[in-house]
Computed example of a mutant assay.
Amino acid sequence: MASVPDARTVKSKPPEIKEFEFGPWKMMTCKSHILESEGDQRKRYDNQLELPQLPEMVFPENILRVVHESGPGIEFNALDALALVNAHADPVKVAASTEWQNARSNCEHIKNVVAPFDWTFTTDYKGTLLKKDPSAQFKVSDTTEQIDLDKLRRQEPIHFYDDVLLFEDELSDNGTSIMNVKVRVMPSCFFILMRLFCRVDDVLIRVNDTRIYHEAGENYMLREFSSREEKTSNIPTAAHTDPNEVSKYLKLTKQTIERLEFHQPSPDS
């Protein structure tokens, strides 16, 4: 089992902040200490979330934020992600039934938690749209347009890259649940991938992906969300710990594609 960093030691380190400008976009990443067991940040999480317990490692100040000069922006953070975890029911138990009972018979989550909740910390979080100025927000609409993966595969120099961890839990040594968000900026576009990778040993593997793509010069971004899942018995063992490799064995259970439009100022404005 991986050791959890001592929050008191880690907190003494200053946050690692990176900033980058891509045309009219300003990007910022922040990586800092884990959530302490007490204090103002902990109270905020306890007050705003209904979860009976939190992941072993939560990074309350870790953020990826992307803001357009005309006002709209999107941010990725742990608090908003965990707010979408089911705090009142245990869908994995329902979905896996007998398999779940057998595989989880010695799990401390089942013994110690009176109120059922989604102990896998699965969330359909797709990012937080910033709403500081009501007149400058993304116009969100469903679309059939998909991210052009061929463009992403083109060999282009990477001007900016970062990988931000939001939370992680080892599910009482019965698997793993980890959520992180990556950003990559090339000369022609930027691409964001936020992934929740959840593996419940001997039961299932689930991957929730949010992909955001923006091509320079366009007045919109594409946001694709997908949820994939499969029983571990149907997946080669060698792929169980590799989120990239395992995805091809998972069944698509949910998908949404959205167009996030924004005002593109004219050169004369």
Rank of each mutant, 00 (worst) to 15 (best):
M1L: 14
S3I: 14
A7M: 02
P15S: 12
I17F: 00
E19T: 13
F20R: 09
W25Y: 04
M28R: 14
I34F: 00
L35G: 00
G39M: 05
Q41T: 06
R42S: 07
R44W: 00
P52S: 11
Q53M: 07
E56Y: 06
V58W: 06
V58I: 15
F59K: 01
E61A: 15
I63V: 15
L64E: 00
H68W: 08
I74G: 08
D80L: 02
D80G: 01
D80C: 04
L82S: 08
N86T: 11
N86P: 11
P91V: 15
A95N: 03
E99I: 12
W100D: 06
S105T: 02
C107P: 04
C107Y: 00
N112Y: 05
D118I: 03
F121E: 03
T122G: 09
Y125K: 03
L130N: 11
L130V: 11
D133K: 10
S135N: 09
S135F: 06
A136M: 04
Q137C: 15
T144H: 12
T144G: 12
E145F: 09
L152Q: 07
R153P: 09
Q155I: 11
E156G: 06
P157C: 00
H159Y: 01
L165W: 15
L166G: 07
E168M: 12
D169F: 05
L171F: 10
N174Q: 10
N174R: 10
V183L: 14
I192W: 01
R199F: 02
R199E: 03
V200Y: 08
V203A: 04
L204A: 07
R211T: 13
Y213G: 02
Y213F: 13
E215S: 01
A216W: 03
E218M: 15
N219M: 05
Y220Q: 01
R223D: 00
E224I: 06
S227E: 13
R228H: 02
E230G: 10
K231Q: 08
N234V: 01
T237R: 09
H240L: 15
K251F: 00
T253N: 00
K254H: 12
Q255T: 15
E258V: 03
L260S: 04
Q264I: 05
S266V: 09
P267M: 11
D268R: 05
